[in-house]
Simulated scan of single mutants.
Amino acid sequence: MSKTDFVLSMRNFGYTTELPTVEQSTVFLRQNLGCRAATLPRWDPDGNQLYTKREKRRKMTYYIADSAVFIMGNCDLDSSLIITVPSVADELKSKDSELRFDLAKEGGLRVEWPEPEMVKEVRKMAEHTRDSEELSKTDLEILAKALEYRDRGILLTDDYAVQNVAVQLGIQVKPIAQKKIKDIIIWQKQCIGCKKTFDKGDVCPICGSPLKKKRKKSRKEKSYS
């Protein structure tokens, strides 16, 4: 509730103060809205609403990081705003990337397991876009974590297959070193021999020739700016 809405609500119940005191707010909330004192809004002397630490966290933008963030080492974000998944650490092979990961953890990096339901939703979308063959277990998990924070998070990745699935799930994406994808793509497989197309596979079931990945359709990516 904004300060204006709160004051207007108080006026409707007979209060005339411009900026309610804590005592007035407490009485008003208890008597008319059935709220506890802990839920009352507070403002500073300039009329700016004050928020608790929990409320501030809810309003923050978080960055969901894949392994490239720690491998490339060109991310200057506050570590306390970065979230990743445990399997990302398994992809860090160099001492430099491991050191960046450890330093980020000391700075507040959060390592969280993905929600199983989110992983299922990611798998479903990856099957739809035909990107499932390109995605590793870590890719699926980082996408699932980004999906969990979709309303207040940005996915940091250079992987085009990950980006392709992410944008179709409504996840905001920010590349690390590469350019961001411009088109959202649905893939299919085409036989290099008989030219028949299939949803998946590596060998043509008709003539036995190899299957090659080919765009089925694409559209411009939605802008989130």
Rank of each mutant, 00 (worst) to 15 (best):
N74M: 12
T84P: 07
F70K: 01
R57V: 06
G73D: 12
R57F: 11
M72P: 00
L81D: 03
T52C: 04
R58A: 15
V111G: 00
A89H: 05
Y63T: 00
T84N: 04
L103M: 10
I64E: 00
D76Q: 14
K59N: 14
Y63Q: 02
L103C: 11
Y63N: 01
I64F: 02
K93A: 14
K59E: 10
K93M: 14
S80W: 02
D78K: 15
K56Q: 13
E106S: 07
S87R: 10
R110N: 07
K56W: 08
K56R: 12
L92F: 02
K93T: 14
G107S: 14
D66Q: 07
G108E: 06
L81C: 13
R110L: 11
V85A: 00
F70E: 01
E55K: 15
K56Y: 06
R58H: 14
L92P: 01
L81G: 03
W43I: 06
D90E: 13
D76R: 14
A68V: 05
V111F: 03
E98C: 11
F70A: 00
S94G: 06
S79V: 01
R100F: 03
Y62H: 09
E112D: 10
M72I: 08
R100G: 01
Q49E: 12
D102Y: 08
S79E: 13
I71W: 00
N74F: 04
V85L: 02
K95R: 10
L92Q: 01
G47T: 03
A65F: 03
L77F: 09
R58V: 13
K105F: 02
K59L: 15
S87L: 08
M60W: 05
D66H: 06
G73E: 12
T84I: 05
E112K: 11
R58D: 13
K105D: 07
E112F: 06
V88A: 02
Y63S: 00
M72Y: 11
I83K: 12
G47P: 03
D46L: 12
A89W: 01
S97Y: 01
L77I: 05
G108M: 10
G47S: 07
C75Q: 09
L103K: 11
R54A: 15
G107W: 10
N48P: 03
T84Q: 04
W43Y: 11
S79Q: 07
S80N: 10
L92M: 05
G47Y: 02
S79C: 13
D66I: 03
V88N: 02
E112M: 11
R110Q: 14
L50V: 14
S87M: 05
A104K: 01
A104E: 04
E55C: 15
V111R: 00
K59Q: 14
G47C: 07
A65K: 05
L103W: 06
Q49A: 10
L77S: 03
L109N: 04
K53Q: 10
A65I: 07
Y63D: 02
M72A: 12
Y51M: 10
D66V: 05
E106Q: 08
Q49R: 13
L50F: 13
Q49N: 10
T52W: 02
K56L: 13
K56F: 07
I71P: 00
L81I: 07
E106T: 09
V88F: 04
D76K: 13
D78E: 15
V69D: 01
L81S: 11
G107A: 13
K56D: 08
I64S: 01
E91P: 04
K95D: 15
Y63M: 02
K56G: 02
E106F: 05
E91M: 07
R57L: 13
S80I: 05
R54F: 03
